[in-house]
Design a protein around this nucleic acid. Structure first.
Lengths: 273, 273
DNA sequence: TTGCTCCTCACGTCACGTGAGGTGGC
DNA sequence: TTGCTCCTCACGTCACGTGAGGTGGC
């Protein structure tokens, strides 16, 4: 008969853990003194303790260990549980490796002279949106090329919505792949949720699908936004994602009188290798 | 101004999480209605939320994130924190990989016709022991070779202890590397803790160091123990450890009248790659 | 008026570590 | 008698999820 302290020392664990295993029914002492409550363990219980510790070491939860110890699974069943564990560990390893790549990407982003604070890029699912949009071609990316287009198109879309009594949500733009000459087709739209809207005035309704994006929130004017895009693209590639088409811009806050206060979310669709 | 639900949707998180971040002071709403307690967030807070989510995604704790958000670390400091994170993730990856190897080793152990239940091998630190021991040479490993040696030596050691009033602990044996002809030097001893013991009768005091072992608890007689050793060695190698010298046997329970009830712990010293 | 959203507690999660306050055995 | 070990609560950990029970705004 061993005291809890002696038994704990054999298993290299704390007496507290043995009390815990007693409480949850994994290893009950062979004998409990009714008067003092002292727990007494048999040497022959060392095998059970070892099995418990071995299973815990493989990453099984105490609940699973309880099942294994109680149900005495066959070798075949045990193999099944081990293979499941194997798959779970591999999955967790994949997650951690991806996380490590993102940390690396942030480190690399901090090396260059970088327009972003570099610590606010987030992977998330962009919600599906329904837009009232109008389409134009611009000579290229960048504030100088795009700003005139926005200045022309935005009033047009808002006017159309006003005429048909549709409440506008936030403004959203997205871009198609640029052509060889650098020109780019830009879609400028306004979130209209599920309100009905007659098409016309060059304005039509489209639905943007839900997709996975790398998202960055930019504050202030969009001058020099190309540099931010460049850093964002590098971060995405460093993180081990592939870029997909049609990046979106969400103008959460846009006040022409105070452009420095504007808040714009850049969303780069990604694919996981 | 955004309600908590709207703001939560922008960040793809639950309102509950925003309340939590409010409570711990990470992101406070721009305005809280004194009468109703309603939280109102500004669009300009979206950047802060993004930064928080990005840091959380890298694996920082909320406490660390609070420090980062509050202290506005320089790029150099931020690099330091990221490198620390990097090291931690790499460490965790190493641990998980080792765990995966152990799961694999168990799976492989279950494939053969195996004398062990295969799920009770545990890596632990063997405690240092002080022994009263006597040394012999045996013609080889295995019950038939070793049992006569034990039968001769054990009474001798116990007799010596009794004559000098030393209380015996458990019996311990350990083995040196076998010679080319298969013969092996075996040390048979008894734990005497820190009691003083005069040497003599071919009995001397030695101290076994603390070391890392793969430990297996065996029940019943030691006949056929070689197969268990073999499986144990294979498990250790499959798990990515290297075998070190001088395996130990601890006879936790040993009653010659009832050998089936005996409990023996086999300890194989290991080195990590 | 009916949903939907918001609010504040407060418990549960997982496997213990760490006291507090007290008793038992050599 | 003095340490040392044992006992039973019970809180703390970490980042929320999940009700319960109730209120506010369109």
């Amino acid at each position: 008969m061993l005291t809890i302290g002696e038994f704990a020392r054999l298993g290299q664990i704390s007496p507290r853990m043995l009390r815990h295993y007693d409480e949850v029914g994994l290893i009950r002492p062979e004998l409990v003194d009714a008067a003092t409550g002292y727990r007494w363990y048999g040497v022959s219980q060392l095998g059970a303790l070892h099995r418990l510790l071995a299973l815990r070491d493989l990453g099984f939860s105490l609940g699973q260990i309880g099942t294994i110890l109680a149900e005495q699974p066959s070798n075949e069943e045990l193999r099944g549980m081990l293979r499941l564990r194997q798959a779970q560990i591999e999955h967790a390893l994949g997650d951690e490796r991806a996380r490590l790549r993102r940390v690396d990407a942030h480190l690399r982003a901090l090396e260059g002279t970088n327009p972003m604070t570099a610590t606010d890029i987030v992977i998330k699912r962009a919600q599906p949106v329904r837009l009232a949009e109008s389409v134009r071609s611009a000579p290229g990316f960048g504030h100088d090329n795009l700003n005139p287009v926005f200045k022309e198109v935005a009033p047009l879309v808002y006017g159309h919505l006003a005429r048909h009594g549709v409440r506008p949500g936030i403004m959203v733009a997205y871009y198609e792949e640029p052509a060889d000459d650098g020109s780019v087709v830009v879609h400028i739209g306004v979130d209209i949720g599920d309100q009905e809207m007659p098409e016309g005035d060059g304005v039509r309704a489209v639905e943007l699908p839900e997709l996975e994006v790398a998202s960055h929130v930019h504050r202030g004017t969009l001058e020099g936004i190309e540099d931010v895009y460049e850093a964002l693209v590098r971060w995405v590639e460093d993180s081990g994602f592939a870029l997909a088409a049609k990046s979106r811009e969400l103008y959460h806050e846009w006040d022409e009188a105070e452009p420095a206060r504007s808040v714009t979310e850049l969303q780069l669709p990604i694919r996981r290798d």
